[in-house]
Design a protein around this nucleic acid. Structure first.
Lengths: 213, 213, 213, 213
DNA sequence: CATGAATGAGTATTCATTCAT
DNA sequence: GATGAATGAATACTCATTCAT
């Protein structure tokens, strides 16, 4: 089952933008990685910036869709937040390169290209904000600065993409559970640990990211 | 009291490397920001990479020195960890640009230049590891994966440099206290909140970073 | 009656070479204008230069044939010259794009491709030279430097292609008459004005250029 | 007396833009002609388009200044027009390359760069229009379509830059006189021939264009 | 007849760096 | 100290053209 050139270009860009940065990645690097001439690259992309923006939008759409699907039924805030954390961690561990690109290279986009990316990220973060706010309102979270705490937890979870290796001692399941627990504790939550629908999160990530988790 | 050209070059590099990235910053950008000709720049620096490496080493040495000074007397693990967290947050909020450079641009260094930087960072992280391990050993921290947790907390705290603005609603003191609390909770610590030597942390940061905190 | 692809390519080339120049027109511009893929273009042309050369030869052949037909019976020099002027002006106003290509892009041709184009132009200009020389010999033209004057008049008449618009105040007939008069006067001719066979000139141009004049 | 690099770049551009066209001239061609590396070129110019626009503005300013100086005192319309023609011809014969650039490459400029160029050209042409209109009003010119005639004469005179060679049989003086005569006749003027201040025109051209005429 | 894919050579422009003054 | 001049190598991107399908 051959991989199309188009897919090879995208994969090359994700890999190189993640490891060397957008400005550190030359068009020639992309071409070499995609096993194409640098001129041929332009059959499959617009400008280098277009390619970056498209990767970001795709990645964020994927994450947003996954998060919405995983928290579809609403449910109580604690489980919703844990689900969001687990999903975020699974996604960042399953697709660390594309999430690093999203996290690190937003500023290189021109305003026009950045706008929809930031909008997607904001929409996604509002899912977290809602879960936290609901939990605080319900009295199950006890935290002084919910907005700051949201940022702190997001940074904590996104960091996974910077260091996690599947060859390390922790399985993905354990990692997700652990982070859900760290987040719950940080939010002052005392209820029993665990992520109720961890299996479903894994299925969603497996489906959306096309990898076995 | 005039600012020396050498200092202007360094300040320009910190600012631009932080906002545009190393590869996104040209020698001419640096020259313009430092109000020097691009040729004159080379009186004050070696190569562009030398400049980056020097900034990183300086920043990490500063952070390490500050952390050592703040936790000098040893003390009990909970307070040590809280002190480390508070200091880290204060430093990242007080010098967000230089810490972002350290956090984001390590990979652009050549192996030879990267080695001492990574060594410094490892040394610094060992202070955190020791505090956490001591706390676990003492039974005041209850956490399943201490090493992973250390990484999670470090990422959470470093993230401050990515979003904190002094014009926001939180004062630095509150921010540091809040993060210390989040970290303590995540570590399963139930003792009374607070950072015993927060004032001293602020003094150290003020001294090392040359800013009023 | 559908326009063939071949004709669309030629028309696109004439339009774009005239407005953007040969070097300013890309193969992709041609393809877009002709509503064909750039690869398909090559079913209807050789190289880009071949296309240009063919356009020039066709245009010059047309102009030459028209001039020969219009001045067929010989006739007296004044009327011959006036006929040539009127025809030249009508042709340049009726097909400004193709004549601009001929006038402006000769130098981009390789020597091999340029040779027949220059030969055609020279043959055409000899018709003018003969009319002028005959008029001078007959004493109806009084001009000091006939060769220079020929060039001056040709440039004057060709310039029509650079500015004439059918939406302007002058009808083609008047324009042709006016230029014939200007040329006659410049040649020191005092005979009565007018172009005897203007109607025939218009018919020739209408036939050769395929437009209603 | 060394020629500065800056001047060499300009001279190279004038020569090459005139002979090969703007789009037909590569930055490498310019560099070779100017005996500089292509990178060094950029010490002396902005973009290639900037260079073109600057050449055009300079050339038109020169022509306009010369025309204003030559026709300063006003004077009667016939002599004014003859002076304008003679000056135009001298200028186009003395600096054929720069005038060809002005005449042929206006359309490659972006709107922003074209605007001042067109404005200068319009201002210059108004000097011709005024002379012609004054002559018509005074009854010394008898011509039906003064505006069209102005364009015809301008094209005729500008054409000189396309074919005149100082190695040809005509001296510049004779050429200028001849064109003044052609123009006068075309305008239906019967007064005695000649250009009253031809010597002054030559001095002005010699001064402005820096060549001996 | 038509075209998507492909590319080597080319485009204008910028790069970090050196050096004579 | 400071910099204008200079450049080889690199940048992102486009060129005209070919060919398998």
């Amino acid at each position: 089952m051959a991989v199309s050139s188009r897919e090879r270009v995208r994969a090359a860009a994700v890999k190189l933008f993640a490891t060397k940065g957008f400005h550190g990645t030359g068009i020639r690097d992309l071409a070499q990685e995609a096993e194409l001439s640098s001129a041929s690259l332009y059959h499959y992309m617009g400008t280098k910036e277009d390619l970056l923006a498209e990767i970001m939008r795709t990645a964020l759409n994927r994450l947003l869709a996954a998060a919405r699907e995983a928290t579809a039924g609403g449910g109580e805030p604690v489980q919703r937040l844990r689900t969001l954390v687990a999903l975020h961690v699974l996604a960042h561990a399953a697709g660390p390169e594309e999430t690093r690109v999203v996290d690190n290279e937003v500023d290189v986009l021109s305003p026009a290209a950045r706008e929809p990316v930031v909008a997607l990220r904001d929409t996604y973060e509002r899912l977290w904000a809602a879960a936290i706010d609901d939990g605080v309102a319900a009295g199950v979270f006890r935290v002084e600065h919910p907005a700051v705490t949201r940022l702190a937890l997001l940074e904590m979870c996104s960091g996974v993409a910077r260091w996690y290796s599947p060859r390390g001692p922790l399985a993905l399941d354990e990692l997700a559970e652990h982070y859900a627990e760290l987040a719950s504790r940080a939010l002052g939550c005392t209820s029993a640990p665990g992520v109720a629908d961890l299996r479903r999160c894994r299925e969603i990530v497996a489906k959306e990211w096309g990898v076995s988790v």
